[in-house]
Design a protein around this nucleic acid. Structure first.
Lengths: 340, 340
DNA sequence: ACGTTTACCGTAATCGTTTACAGACCGGCG
DNA sequence: CGCCGGTCTGTAAACGATTACGGTAAACGT
């Protein structure tokens, strides 16, 4: 582990001042003779400027923090990739701040941001409490929230249109002839859980479908295992649904597998639609019809919003909503026409 | 965006010196009267110490960099989670340094580490060139490599036993009665690709299986799509294999889907085994027999090795190899006994 | 030839902490 | 009463860069 050279050492070695070293290495005005000397000395000593010292002086870390609720969820993975892509090409680094389900984690995170280890934060919280909103509005560094916020909150944010996505999915199933459409939701006290539950109720009413509360089941979280754990409540009934919407691709796949394990066929006996349109939808068999809520674009836009705000802190607060898009695959099958 | 208070302001507000502020906030010796005053002042001004300044002074950033080749690969996602878990509980942050397929990216990364933006690096390179090894050995900060390195390289590393894993898989298939066992590999010029190819050849020989080079196919990378693109070369033959090993769960799933789309049955017509034992193996139908190369443990151990080396830079170089473990699921089916 | 602009370069201040060092104070012991 | 030991506290020097400022010398115009 060789010692690191400092700018002062380079300066001494080249017989110039540290100011000149800094100038040359940052491409500021300097004679070509000077530039050559400094560069030679820097190369000889294998000098690399210290990021920490630079950050302290210029007041920027060139790092952006990213916090998502669940790194295991493919939708978040896709979002992370998109964020990192934008962030990196802008010359910043991404620091990952995974967090648990505890909303206090998020509050701590925003507080810690005040330490200045990053120039901004992209936060995708599962639950939004009043405390969190308060903390966000008083954050010492710019924050962009991915997901909905209470109306009037003055924070840049980019949200999915969950109710719209649910409507797209249910309408599609209705068009295919499904009438008893079940819903496997995640925890209803989360932002996406609540939004999707709202969308489900609203659309069921609008389409004139049976408002049977037994058709709506919630999993403990948005994971495959949690989906499997409660799938029986939906399927093992005298009057099982002829279609199920999963609040998530993972939950949808859980339903698909639960159906097939019971000897049922997807989509003939039960059609299934997922949400997020992750890669999973392509891998699984039957491939999964899924409505994209724009995870990738949300990530990209969030990163761009953050960079823009860092560049101009006084710009207007932005609020972007993605429009959902349905991709039809095998799990909701071809038109059911003659059957049933 | 309220202004940030500095230690000097807190000191002035409390009528003490900045040294005392620092001492109190870091829990060093100080009278209770002093502690109370400082804490009151700090609370009043909502003071949070600056991470950058602290880092500059103490020479630690409390950040660890993590670089993996492909964030889309579930095996790496699992590894990332494991790393982050360990890193975070040790009080460090994880900074993500995604990189492309270009080996130069990795060299840049190691070089950049000299800037001191992180206290250490966990690197999982797809390809290991001589230049990279050289760079690693002269790195200014501790590096742990996940994956194999040329013998004699003095770098902490934790590797998978790919050949062992392949042997496990092939032996299993052989035991099930399969004789024409195909292999869908990733790029053979990558570290895992090369290791698995070696393992395949060796085991095929040992088991006395046909050494038909047409049975071994390589995909352009370790992704599902790349697998799909070349699956035909393996399946659409006069003498198709009765089993296929995927170098990857993604590649294995690609084979499974390609088989079923051709009307074949898995495992009856073609048994399939994957590698990495990711969550995908549970989701897909038929569920995928897969050999775990210990992605999660590799991540955990890599993080622990790095932390240990940071704590004691002169400790002996460690090299850990995970032993592979086979999990049998439906895709390689029950004993084939009477059939064929 | 002389004043003035221009281009470079070095000195030193600065970013916000931590921490070595030394001074101040108090109590207790001989 | 003097001295020693210990406990706190403040002063000031780092950490390693960037950059405002001023000075020097070359270049230029008349």
């Amino acid at each position: 582990m060789p010692q690191r050279a400092t700018a002062a050492q380079v300066a001494a070695h080249a017989g110039v001042s540290v100011a000149s070293v800094s100038r040359v290495l940052n491409g500021l005005a300097s004679s070509s003779r000077m530039a050559a000397r400094v560069q030679a000395a820097a190369a000889e000593l294998d000098y690399v400027p210290d990021a920490t010292a630079r950050s302290l002086k210029v007041g920027r870390t060139e790092q952006l923090a990213l916090a998502v609720a669940d790194v295991g969820n493919p939708a978040y993975v896709a979002m992370m990739r998109a964020v990192d892509e934008v962030v990196r090409t802008a010359g910043y680094r991404t620091v990952l701040s995974a967090m648990g389900a505890d909303p206090d984690d998020e509050i701590d995170l925003v507080r810690n941001l005040a330490r200045g280890y990053a120039d901004g934060l992209i936060l995708s919280p599962l639950r939004v409490t009043a405390d969190l909103v308060h903390e966000l509005e008083h954050a010492r560094r710019p924050v962009v929230v991915v997901g909905s916020l209470p109306p009037g909150t003055a924070i840049d944010n980019v949200r999915a249109d969950s109710p719209g996505g649910v409507r797209l999915a249910l309408t599609h199933l209705h068009d295919r002839g499904c009438r008893r459409i079940g819903f496997l939701n995640g925890p209803p006290d989360t932002v996406p859980g609540a939004a999707r539950a709202r969308g489900y109720l609203r659309t069921v009413k609008r389409l004139g479908l049976p408002q049977d509360s037994a058709l709506s089941v919630t999993a403990a979280d948005f994971t495959y295992d949690a989906g499997r754990a409660v799938a029986a409540r939906l399927l093992d009934r005298d009057d099982p649904p002829d279609a199920v919407l999963g609040a998530n691709d993972l939950l949808a796949v859980a339903i698909v597998n639960a159906v097939t394990e019971r000897g049922g066929r997807v989509p003939e006996d039960v059609a299934v639609v997922g949400m997020d349109d992750t890669e999973l939808a392509e891998y699984t068999r039957p491939s999964l019809t899924s409505v994209s809520l724009g995870s990738v674009e949300r990530g990209r836009i969030a990163a761009e919003l953050l960079l823009a705000r860092i560049a101009d802190p006084s710009r207007d607060v932005q609020r972007v909503t993605m429009t959902p898009r349905l991709t039809i695959r095998s799990s909701s099958g071809p038109a059911r026409g003659g059957r049933a």
